[in-house]
Simulated scan of single mutants.
Amino acid sequence: MRIGYKYIHSVVIMGILCFITEIASTVEFTNIKCTSADVKFVNYEVCRLKSVNRTYKYVSVKSRLFKLPITNATINISVFKRLNGYKPFLYNVSVDACRFLQVQKSNSVVKYLFNLFLTHSNVKNPSCPFNAYVTVDKLTTNFLNNQFTNVLPVPEGDYLFVFKWFSENIYHSSVKVYSTIS
């Protein structure tokens, strides 16, 4: 049986097109907003999205805590997707931050979201109290691209991640990270 040149050529072209058109999501930061409801409790010294060039952006946040030691902290993490305004999407969870840091297996959703910035943060202690400074330094989208494509595929769109911090059931601050996944 003889296979024609045109047939082999077509199969090779189709294989190359399939390889090239493999879908890979990319994350891009679009904005960050840090707000403190009680400046006597927490102040954001740095809250910035730095654009080095068109493709390389990073987020840096440095918050200073004033009323130490903090032994009772709660974090609420919400994810929103932009559909005629930002609407709740998938997750809205609250956890005791001190307990979560001790037993990270207690909530797999929070662990996934926490691991998005863990490598660039100083919050690595497995317990409370928290330090005077809580930082996330130069978090780029390279790590996030892997998390949003291979670990947990996320549909394309504009997203808002909201991190609200409470101590003794009193709201103190929030960080809002706006991003686009394409």
Rank of each mutant, 00 (worst) to 15 (best):
M1G: 03
M1F: 02
M1E: 05
I3V: 05
Y5R: 08
Y7I: 07
I8E: 00
H9G: 06
H9D: 05
V12I: 09
G15M: 04
G15S: 10
F19Q: 10
F19C: 07
E22Q: 15
I23P: 09
I23D: 06
I23E: 11
T26K: 09
V27F: 01
F29L: 08
N31H: 01
T35H: 15
D38H: 11
V39A: 12
F41D: 07
C47P: 13
R48N: 12
K50Y: 08
V52D: 03
N53Q: 00
N53L: 00
R54V: 08
T55G: 04
Y56H: 15
Y58M: 11
V59K: 10
V61T: 13
R64Q: 15
R64L: 13
L65W: 02
L65V: 12
K67C: 06
P69D: 08
P69Y: 07
I70V: 15
T71P: 08
N72V: 10
N72F: 05
A73Q: 11
A73M: 07
A73Y: 14
I75N: 14
I77E: 06
I77G: 08
F80V: 01
F89H: 03
F89P: 00
L90K: 09
L90E: 09
Y91W: 05
N92R: 14
V95E: 06
R99S: 13
F100N: 07
Q102D: 10
V103E: 08
S106Q: 08
N107W: 03
S108Y: 07
V109Y: 06
V110M: 10
K111I: 07
K111E: 04
Y112C: 12
Y112N: 04
F114M: 06
F114C: 02
N115G: 10
N115V: 04
L116Q: 13
S121M: 10
N122Q: 06
V123S: 06
V123T: 06
V123R: 04
N125W: 03
P126C: 13
P126G: 11
A132P: 03
Y133T: 12
V134T: 11
K138E: 11
K138F: 00
K138G: 06
K138Q: 12
L139V: 01
T140A: 05
T140E: 03
T140P: 00
T141K: 01
T141A: 11
Q147L: 10
N150H: 15
N150L: 11
L152R: 15
V154K: 12
V154G: 03
D158Q: 14
L160Y: 11
F161P: 04
V162P: 01
F166W: 13
E168C: 05
I170K: 14
I170C: 06
S173Y: 09
